[in-house]
Design a binder for these strands. Structure first.
Lengths: 173, 173
DNA sequence: GCAACCGATTGCAAAATGCAATCAGATTGG
DNA sequence: CCAATCTGATTGCATTTTGCAATCGGTTGC
């Protein structure tokens, strides 16, 4: 990933940050999957990233200011990765990207239900989600008691679809 | 660019379409730069794509349904590439991407003025731009006489910044 | 102790990329 | 009519990136 031949074009510079196969997948798993540890990211995503690539991308995303790393106080060996504000503001882009992919690509129902919900929720839901991420990752106060978290809502919808599929597919009930 | 190990996740599938260094650059040059020919894309972009990579990506984007190719009637040798509706609907994503890059990355003023204008124009401007692209690339009728084209507006703003910079930088006037 | 787990690192084969040279056909200028 | 130029690519080759499995030293739970 050479950083020469850069141009000052915003789209080009954005592509230099996450215009590769894995960086955005990692950010997706941190943002929507709530994963904070190396192993969670390594084993958690369906796509199966290799450990050396994961280590390289985490390092790179830190150098770019998208992530920070800290010791997990509960476990001297664990490192906990946090999103920066720079990464959190990707939420609207990920929402648009998910909506686009849902329309034009052969997405699976259970994995696109979250994108659908996020699209229907629109900017207000994205803002709420970003505030929750700021709370989790940056320690910002969470203003009001505003019902269940966005991630919990998305996760519940996912579980419902999976359960429904299992029900429908099962011959015994 | 292996297409196995895919998951049905919308974000993952989107990344399989343009999660590489060049595909979105090509689309950017076609959408915002109005380039339709191989040579225009080869020499036109600041980033300097290699001809074999360009040929490969054009082929790939065609297979994915983002582009179509046709003979240029004015020149039996020229091929003219057109955006499909699938590609045109990327405009909001590119607008968001440009806005994000403008905030967080060291963009140059002359190359980010377009992103700024597109951000300020918001969804109405994006819709107008997409209609113009549908007219250019898909032959759809252009409803009303609605002033100068979005691309012309963006281009004029770019020229103004460049001229201003030249003026400011020039010692003789 | 000791097996399981932690975040990586290493070695190696395979694939993708960058780069320059080149291709055949079409067009243009003189 | 012919040479120079331009068209959209393709080829060969060196470099870089990736995928994959094995492994590392240290930590934890039991």
């Amino acid at each position: 990933m050479s950083l020469d031949r850069r141009s000052g074009c915003p789209i080009n510079l954005s592509l230099e940050v996450f215009g590769d196969r894995w960086s955005l997948i990692i950010l997706r798993d941190m943002i929507f999957g709530g994963r904070r540890h190396f192993r969670e990211l390594l084993n958690g995503s369906i796509e199966g990233i290799a450990s050396n690539i994961l280590a390289d991308r985490l390092k790179r995303l830190m150098e770019l200011g998208m992530l920070t790393k800290a010791d997990d106080p509960s476990h001297k060996q664990k490192a906990i990765y946090s999103l920066t504000e720079m990464a959190i503001t990707l939420v609207p882009i990920l929402a648009h990207l998910g909506a686009w992919g849902r329309v034009w690509l052969p997405t699976s129902e259970e994995l696109s239900i979250r994108a659908e919900l996020l699209e229907k929720g629109g900017p207000p839901m994205w803002e709420k989600f970003m505030d929750e991420l700021r709370h989790e990752h940056l320690g910002m106060p969470l203003d009001t008691a505003s019902g269940p978290s966005v991630r919990a809502t998305l996760q519940a919808a996912y579980q419902a679809v999976v359960a429904g599929k299992a029900l429908g597919a099962s011959p015994v009930a």
